[in-house]
Design a protein around this nucleic acid. Structure first.
Length: 427
RNA sequence: GGAGGGAUGGCCGAGCGGACGAAGGCAACAGUCUUGAAAACUGUAGUGGGCAUUGCUCACCGGGGGUUCGAAUCCCUCUCCCUCCGCCA
């Protein structure tokens, strides 16, 4: 790349100039020191004290020294000017280079199957609960919700417009129960540390996580201040260790956070407008890991399992989907989705997305670790995965567990979080 | 929102225009002493970049600009922290 070559040229020249300036500044410093001494001696000599030399000699020395220093100053000043010019050019080149780099997506891992788009993703056989069968026609959640008075679409739209809804009564409680359930599961069984981050943060954090500049249109931001609303907790968790050097011994770091997520969904305009599948605001429990270079793919496999575990515990019917090169997104080197079957809308819904970003985010957010063997500091690898995304899990539960009498059976594991209730009662 | 004070190496803390990448202390690592440990003593120790395969060099004292031959030190600006006042869940 030409820009990079130019950058190196400037760098070398500017450093050489700096070296010379440093040298000559030191010399000037020495001269200035002697000059002061001489002046003092001259003063004393003029006052008639004996300093070993007469006034004329001292004057001559002083003048020579002064001339030397002045010459050197002038010379060095010119160097300084050249340095200032080069610095300016360097700034521009750096900015251009950085701007360019920020738009370069991550490269796929060699194991990622080739394919142009999501239609080529590899879906593995369904796991978990068997496909539910009904003696009646199961309803989609956008019918069940209002009927049971647990989802209120109209009032959501009244207050905030399309793609907003209100959860009420058992609906709101179900979501809250799921959040608790997921967090508890991951911290007690999978060893994650729970994190409650800010929900809005500076633009630089979004750059670090790879959301900016590319996905600017999908982010809500404050009109007056440099705040943006999280589209996912991943952004917060990535930047937890921004500008830090971790010790290898403290890796892997495993975090789990519940946050609401805010997305403009501009690029998906008109898609999935029905129900609660794709809103401008949704809740998610997110898993995140910082690992060494060597262990990130092992960690990816573990995180997939972590997400499967909660699906299993909720009695979902789910399947693993492996993303092809064309559907990896911007930051991931390898990515799996987990999809849950929803019997009402007859759809596989994405409830989790689990990615290894390797050093992509670490480079942007400057996250490093010191190897245990004392070697050079290296970039950490980062991984993120939903564990899980709430609305779609709600859809699957509501639709799959609906009964002929209109009630909805609550999965056993969730009941302690629902006040012991076994069902959401029919209206 | 108003008025002040501050940000220095892993931590504490000095330096406030010239040999400062930065005193001193603590912590860390290695060694001496010891049966072992502690104490004491000695030594090593930051990050990033550029050339060059023992080395040389540049940058970094919250971020960014500037003044100067020369900036941790002076000026501007931004961010953050603290104290007092006001407001507030």
């Amino acid at each position: 790349m030409a820009t990079d070559g130019r950058r190196r040229e400037i760098l070398q020249e500017v450093e050489e100039l700096r070296r010379r300036r440093n040298e000559s500044s030191k010399q000037i410093g020495l001269w200035m020191g002697s000059l002061k001494k001489l002046e003092a001696e001259l003063k004393r000599a003029e006052a008639g004290q004996d300093v070993g030399q007469d006034v004329a000699q001292l004057r001559a020395q002083l003048l020579t020294l002064q001339a030397n220093a002045d010459n050197a100053k002038e010379e060095t000043r010119l160097m300084g000017e050249r340095i200032t010019d080069l610095d300016e050019e360097l700034r521009q080149v750096d900015a251009a280079l950085r701007e360019y780099m920020l738009w370069v997506p991550n490269l796929p891992h060699e194991s990622v199957p080739d394919g142009p788009d999501d239609s080529h993703n590899i879906a593995y056989p369904p796991q978990g609960a068997p496909e539910p069968h009904f003696a009646f026609t199961p309803k989609p959640h956008w019918e069940l919700g209002p009927e049971l008075d647990i989802i209120d679409f109209e009032r959501g739209v009244k207050m905030s417009g399309s793609r907003f809804y209100v959860l009420k009564g058992w609906g709101a409680r179900l979501q809250r129960a799921l959040i608790q359930f997921f967090l508890d599961y991951h911290i007690t069984r999978h060893g994650y540390t729970e994190v409650y981050p800010p929900f809005m943060m500076r633009a630089a954090m979004f750059e670090g996580a790879g959301q900016l500049p590319k996905f600017k249109d999908n982010i809500y931001r404050d009109a007056e201040e440099d705040y943006m609303w999280l589209g996912t907790a991943e952004i917060a968790l990535t930047n937890m260790h921004r500008d830090e050097i971790l010790e290898e011994a403290e890796l892997p770091k495993k975090y789990v956070a519940y946050t609401p997520c805010f997305r403009r969904e501009k690029m998906s305009a008109g898609r999935d407008v029905r129900g609660i599948k794709r809103g401008h605001q949704f809740d998610k429990v997110e898993m995140y890991r910082f690992t060494t270079e060597e262990t990130s793919y092992q960690a990816l496999a573990e995180m997939v399992q972590d997400a499967k575990d909660v699906c299993q515990a909720l009695g979902l019917r789910y399947r693993l989907v492996e993303m092809v090169t064309g559907d990896l997104g911007f930051a991931a080197t390898k990515k799996y989705d987990l999809e849950a079957w929803a019997a009402g809308c007859q759809e596989w819904l994405e409830i989790s997305s689990i990615s290894n970003c390797e050093a992509f985010q670490a480079r942007r957010a400057n996250i490093k670790y010191r190897p245990a063997d004392g070697g050079r500091v290296r970039y950490a690898h980062t991984l993120n995965g939903s564990g899980l995304a709430l609305p779609r899990v709600m859809i699957a539960l509501i639709e799959n567990n609906q009964q002929e009498d209109g009630s909805i059976v609550i999965p056993e594991g969730l009941r302690p979080y629902m006040g012991g209730a076994e069902r959401i009662p029919a209206a």
